[in-house]
């Protein structure tokens, strides 16, 4: 139909030429892993950005708290105490942007410093829960059989108790509630969740074709578990960890609120502040308002981040 064109004269690069060049470029470039892929998706997701901003601000504030806070958390100021009465708590005034709390301490400084406690409890509780949960889940998922049966029955028992009730009972068991007991109580609640989640994902991995492929290649069992099953099963666990940070903060606040938290009055903690503000709700609602907002905002931040992470890691969303 069409004869081949003579191409003696130089011709502009065609689509095909450009394509060839692009292919050559690609050949030089390094591949992109799934993790890198997920990260890029995360960066483009507005939900993730909102979550990250909230969480980032929170972390920043809690790290810099001693420098940001104008005053100490424990010191009661005479100029505040002077006007402090059971039916009136002084509001904002020079030097004290949020006014006084019920004991004549600087409410603003306490709010700032409390972020530290909250982050500490949230992060440690989640980390401890994660470590033990992953350990149990990985063992159950990798070995199966009776190891799996025993471990899973135990986690089932723990799971069947409502989480807050479990945390309360654990915290109540200790003679003297302290920050450590709060962390342990909250961590223990999340252990069975992580364990179950990882075990399920591990079992799914165990049945997967690529694990079968590794087995048939003659890869050692330990390498299969550590290189193939665990990394592929961790996705949902990481997402859950982010979400657990939020619930841990809420749980810790709830424990404090119920009087099972850290007894040290010198330490500020949002949950405890909220609990104490109860008595003065009609006198000065701001005392309850600010800690409540702070808890909700931080929990929201972690939840948004977790949801965005779930979306980014979800293989079904991948094209």
């Amino acid at each position: 139909m069409t004869s081949p064109r003579g191409s003696l004269r130089p011709r502009p690069p065609t689509l095909l030429d450009r394509r060839r060049r692009r292919v050559d470029e690609l050949a030089e470039a390094s591949g992109r892993s799934l993790t890198a892929d997920a990260f890029q998706r995360l960066r483009r997701n507005p939900v993730a950005i909102v979550g990250a901003v909230i969480v980032g601000l929170f972390v920043l504030v809690s790290i810099l708290a001693p420098w940001i806070a104008p005053h100490d958390a424990a010191t009661a100021f005479p100029e505040l105490q002077r006007t402090l009465r059971p039916d009136s708590i002084p509001g904002a005034q020079p030097g004290f942007p949020l006014g006084s709390d019920q004991n004549g301490r600087d409410f603003f400084s306490r709010m700032i410093l409390a972020s530290r406690q909250t982050l500490l409890v949230g992060v440690f509780a989640t980390l401890i829960g994660l470590v033990f949960g992953v350990l149990i889940g990985a063992l159950a998922g990798a070995f199966g059989g009776w190891v799996d049966t025993v471990l899973m029955r135990v986690t089932d028992v723990l799971l069947s108790i409502p989480s807050l009730l479990l945390a309360i009972s654990i915290a109540a068991l200790t003679a003297k509630p302290s920050q450590t007991t709060v962390i342990i109580a909250v961590a223990l609640v999340s252990v069975p969740v992580f364990a179950r989640l990882l075990r399920g994902a591990m079992l799914a991995q165990r049945e997967s074709d690529h694990v079968l492929a590794a087995t048939s290649l003659g890869v050692k069992r330990r390498a299969i578990v550590l290189r193939h099953m665990l990394p592929n099963a961790m996705g949902p666990v990481i997402v859950q960890a982010t979400l657990t940070l939020a619930t841990s903060i809420l749980d810790a606040a709830a424990l404090s609120f119920l009087g099972l938290g850290d007894g040290d009055p010198a330490r500020a903690e949002w949950g405890l502040m909220l609990a104490n503000a109860q008595a003065y709700l009609d006198v000065r609602p701001a005392l309850a308002f600010w800690p409540a907002i702070a808890i909700i905002l931080v929990a929201l931040g972690f939840t948004l981040l977790g949801e965005a992470l779930r979306e980014a890691l979800d293989p079904k969303g991948r094209r």
């Binding site: 892993s33 799934l34 997967s208 690529h210 592929n232 293989p315």
Partner: peptide, 8 residues
């Protein structure tokens, strides 16, 4: 499905 998606 028979290639581990996380390995190069």
């Amino acid at each position: 499905s028979s290639l581990d998606p996380r390995q190069s």
